[in-house]
Amino acid sequence: MNRQVMGNWMLVLALAVALGLVMQAPALAAAKQELVSAKVKQAPAGLDDAVWKDAKALEVPFEGKEKFAGMKAAVTVRSVYSGDNIYFLFHWKDANKSVTKGAWKYDGQQWAQQKGNEDRISLLFEIDRINNFASKGCTVTCHGAADAPKKEWKFATASAAEKGDLWHWKAARSDPYHYAEDGWLTVAGEKTGRKVDEGKGGDAKNMTDDKSKPKFMRDPAKTASAPGFLLAEEAVEITDYAVFKAGDVITYQMPKKPSGSQADIQAMSRYADGAWTLMLTRKLNTGNADDVAFNAQKKYSFAMALFDDSGDENSYDSEAMTLAFGR
């Protein structure tokens, strides 16, 4: 009797193991790249925190578009989550640190805007499902008549029911305040479908009405919280242009202090040894309607774009990827 009971338990056990094995199999089928956000006890304090070792690195290939057509790039991405927050760590090679963004330069005679853009990286998630985003990535957010020039194409979703969450780190315009611009994507209006979240932020143009020179300089009474950048909150109107000497540089697009839902994504960055390292931090669920709310049970589709000292059309784009959460 006992032998029989044991034999039957073995059978039940074998059945359970078989079920488990069979169920695991489809997990191997994923063709898309999957970034697994590891669950960690201690939140990462910085770019070099030991906790990042717990997160499996994902090497994401990027393909150049427009000006960068035919070129390739790669970003190493890691992610962890802890408590209420999710953390992303990005690392990518970039021969030049580009933060000029048209800054003014004085040559002793007159002011001129320097050539040069900025380095940026952006992520797009779905707030409300964007049709075929999961399989096609950001290409489905590119809208325009087939015969219209690419410059007139709009970055948008196909309908107001489709909603994207756009994380946009800008080396010159959002990083000085240690955040990434938090926007969202909807159907195109007059211009693109890109919107910024509720609250304040962004940047202010530093230019006189005749567009010949900067209008603001650093307020001597305030200490520079972001050396090399003129923040809008630390600026004061220039009264005497005689104080400047040749070679002086002043920020053209002055970062404004973010607040509200625009301040959701904190950033920490470093440019060293020809590479950017960037950490982004956000609440898993900000409670804001213009943000994707992460549920650790679920998988999310996302895609990324990289801008190397370039404007919006000239980017390196990734394919759509999956963000999953470890348990």
């Binding site: 169920m23 489809p26 089928a29 075929n132 096609k136 998988k299 589709s301």
Partner: peptide, 23 residues
């Protein structure tokens, strides 16, 4: 313990997706 996954939404135009037969 092993939450059943929900894959990506169907994209009838996606030629890259190769369905794998179940056991």
């Amino acid at each position: 313990l092993w939450p059943v996954p929900l894959g990506d939404p169907a994209d009838p135009t996606d030629s890259n997706y190769i369905p794998k037969p179940e056991w």
